[in-house]
Amino acid sequence: MSATLAKAPRPAAATGVGVVRRITQLLDAFVDAPGHLLLEELTGITGLPRSTAFRLLGQLIDQGWVTHDARGYALGPRASLITTQAHSQEEIRVTAHEQLNTLHLRTRAVAHLWVLTGGFVYCLDKVGGLVDDSVPTGVGTRIPAADSAGGRALLATMAPEAVYCLLADVHRRALSESEQNAVHQRLAAVRAQRGVASEQARNRNGVSAVAVPVTHRGQGIAAVSLAWRGALANADAVVPQLFTAAGVIRARLGS
Score class of each variant (00 low, 15 high):
83 T>V: 13
37 L>C: 00
91 E>W: 06
50 R>M: 04
94 V>I: 14
72 G>P: 03
36 H>T: 02
46 T>S: 06
84 T>V: 13
108 R>C: 10
127 V>P: 01
41 E>Y: 02
58 G>Q: 06
50 R>H: 05
109 A>D: 13
120 F>E: 15
75 L>R: 10
58 G>C: 06
67 T>P: 01
76 G>Q: 08
103 L>T: 10
114 W>P: 03
85 Q>M: 09
46 T>A: 08
125 D>G: 01
66 V>W: 05
88 S>F: 08
111 A>P: 01
124 L>P: 01
50 R>T: 07
98 E>K: 09
128 G>R: 09
89 Q>D: 14
73 Y>A: 08
107 T>N: 06
98 E>P: 00
93 R>D: 07
114 W>Y: 14
106 R>D: 12
103 L>S: 09
114 W>E: 08
63 Q>M: 06
113 L>D: 04
41 E>V: 03
120 F>V: 11
42 L>K: 02
66 V>N: 07
57 L>T: 11
77 P>A: 15
109 A>S: 13
105 L>V: 08
54 F>Q: 12
104 H>S: 09
87 H>G: 00
96 A>Q: 07
126 K>H: 02
99 Q>M: 09
65 W>A: 13
88 S>Y: 10
55 R>I: 02
51 S>K: 13
112 H>V: 03
51 S>P: 00
53 A>Q: 04
38 L>M: 10
56 L>E: 14
69 D>H: 10
91 E>T: 14
76 G>Y: 05
49 P>C: 02
115 V>M: 12
101 N>L: 07
99 Q>F: 00
45 I>D: 03
76 G>A: 10
49 P>A: 15
38 L>H: 11
62 D>R: 15
97 H>V: 00
46 T>N: 07
53 A>V: 02
79 A>I: 02
60 L>V: 05
61 I>E: 15
42 L>N: 01
65 W>S: 11
62 D>W: 04
69 D>C: 09
67 T>R: 15
75 L>T: 13
51 S>H: 11
113 L>K: 03
81 L>C: 06
94 V>N: 10
104 H>C: 04
93 R>F: 02
91 E>I: 06
46 T>P: 02
90 E>F: 01
38 L>D: 09
80 S>E: 15
80 S>D: 13
98 E>A: 14
49 P>W: 05
124 L>W: 04
125 D>L: 00
44 G>A: 14
90 E>V: 05
51 S>Q: 12
